[in-house]
């Protein structure tokens, strides 16, 4: 049997499997990328708990109060003393009310450093209560033993 040659054959690498694998890898890294990092500040070291349950779904109108170890509240990128957070909270409440929602249904996420004073945390909670917020989520790092 005679085979006909089609001229000089060029050796071609089939790139398809490599590109497939690479796209898989990109997809993987895209999915594990943490988008909520903006909420997490390295200035705050959360206390560790084995029972802190990861949030089920997205919280409705969450307000995050980040409390540093030396008793300041991180708000809009600035450190605000605890006793001055009533004004920003008032604005938050007005925004929630303007959107037709009830502040009582909003959740205040308290991300306090493990070394912060409990009294400061309680003061933050009290000011939030005075502004009409009722639901609080004390945030901790989840580490099973």
């Amino acid at each position: 049997m005679i085979r006909r040659s089609n001229g000089p054959a060029t050796v071609e690498n089939d790139m398809t499997p490599m590109i497939d694998v690479t796209f898989q890898l990109i997809t993987f890294f895209m999915f594990v990328l943490n988008f909520s990092e903006a909420e997490q500040d390295e200035r705050i070291q959360l206390p560790v708990s084995q029972l802190a349950k990861p949030a089920e779904g997205v919280l409705e109108t969450p307000i995050t109060m980040q409390l540093t170890a030396d008793g300041g509240v991180l708000y809009a990128g600035e450190v605000v003393p605890v006793d001055q957070i009533d004004r920003p909270l008032q604005q938050e409440r007005e925004i929630i009310e303007a959107a037709g929602k009830d502040p009582k249904q909003a959740t205040v996420i308290v991300r306090a450093d493990g070394r912060a004073s409990t009294g400061d945390v309680q003061q933050v909670i009290r000011i939030c209560q005075e502004e009409g917020f009722e639901r609080f989520a004390l945030r901790a790092l989840y580490k099973p033993e």
């Binding site: 560790v48 349950k53 990861p54 989520a137 004390l138 901790a140 989840y142």
Partner: peptide
């Protein structure tokens, strides 16, 4: 960056 997941303790505390 692999970080431990965060969890909440839900507390309902009206004034």
């Amino acid at each position: 960056n692999i970080i431990a997941p965060e969890g909440d303790f839900d507390i309902r505390m009206p004034l």
